[in-house]
């Protein structure tokens, strides 16, 4: 088990390095140096050269990359010349709010999707199942911002239950937590999209397990339907969901970005969006790499969690 974790960690480190390299190279092609952002678009060639020399942007790409990696290890993700602040500081300031949004959306969607998927599998091909499946399909095919717009239209503008954008008074996680109405719409929007994909998987995973003989044996023991589902089906059907949640991190990040833009909620998604507009490449680079690291971490944690939860893997 420990060997397994160490091996996975080693792979994760290698993949992370790969992600950093690929992203770094791509961004380097887009913008070899932030010099024009600092000195202005009409800077003198000599000044540009001097600045590049001073900040190490004249060195070979790989050398620059190695320096960058070294800095990352020390927690330094570079400097945003547009915002005149270190990227690390910017992330530190914004990430809590984003994590709150993503985390609550994830928890909410799992709380809905797991029971929903099982219920659908148990009552497969009933009207309820068809309705939920159709709704899922529609949600799944809908851009998240579009769903958000619809919710804003009805719940915020027409009926005035929730604010259409998150108030800029909400600067801390605690603030968000104590003003639940402020963040209800963003969380619900983000969760709804996840529910669509999670419950689809949960339904098919539960269906697969329901077809197994152990469910039949559990019923042959005389267990009630409820006991069969909670004691036997639930755990087995949830095993693949662990992996799925691990894999959904890139989508959560993307969802975060869109929802933060839509509701003007100042998390790292919005920070990234601003950087896109400003061509603030250091922020972009850092965010993409951070996203990659999160993805790798998510997969790693999911792998280990599955191994812990599944005796077939744990005990080989």
């Amino acid at each position: 088990m420990i060997g397994f974790v160490i091996r996975r960690l080693a792979v994760a480190v290698l993949v992370t390095l790969g992600i950093a390299l690929v992203t770094f190279l791509l961004l380097h092609i887009l913008s070899p140096s932030p010099v024009y952002a600092v000195l202005g678009a009409k800077a003198e060639p000599a000044a540009v050269k001097a600045w590049n020399l001073q900040h190490g942007y004249d060195r070979p790409v790989l050398a620059q990359f190695l320096t960058y990696i070294g800095n990352i290890i020390h927690g330094d993700f570079g400097y945003s010349y547009k915002l005149s602040q270190s990227v690390t500081a910017l992330f530190r300031e914004h990430s809590g709010r984003s994590a709150y949004l993503s985390g609550s959306a994830l928890v909410l969607s799992l709380l809905i999707a797991l029971p929903l998927g099982i219920a659908q599998a148990v009552r497969r091909n009933s009207i309820g199942d068809y309705t939920v499946t159709s709704l899922n399909f529609i949600l799944y095919s809908m851009p998240s911002f579009f769903l958000g717009l619809i919710l804003i239209q009805f719940l915020a503008l027409d009926w005035g239950v929730f604010p259409p954008v998150v108030s800029d008074q909400i600067t801390t996680v605690w603030g968000a937590f104590t003003h639940p109405l402020q963040l209800t719409l963003p969380i619900v929007t983000l969760a709804a999209i996840n529910v669509a994909s999670f419950s689809r998987y949960m339904r098919s995973s539960a269906l697969d397990n329901l077809a197994q003989d152990y469910i039949r044996l559990a019923r042959a023991k005389g267990l009630s339907q409820r006991a069969v589902l909670t004691r036997h089906l639930l755990r087995n059907a949830c095993l693949p969901m662990i992996t799925l949640v691990g894999l959904s991190i890139p989508y959560l990040l993307a969802g975060n970005l869109l929802i933060e833009v839509l509701f003007n909620y100042s998390g790292i998604g919005l920070l990234f969006y601003t950087a896109l507009g400003n061509l603030d490449y250091n922020v972009l680079l850092a965010y993409v790499i951070a996203g990659g690291i999160l993805t790798v971490l998510g997969n790693l944690i999911a792998d280990v969690a599955v191994a812990v939860a599944d005796p077939r893997i744990r005990l080989g």
């Binding site: 003989d213 039949r216 042959a220 005389g222 267990l223 087995n236 095993l239």
Partner: peptide, 24 residues
Amino acid sequence: LRRIRGNEVAMIFQDSLSSLNPTK
């Protein structure tokens, strides 16, 4: 019927691997 299953009438199946719950 549930009171009878596994109590008065019991059943065993062919495939013992899929008939036992893998995580219990």
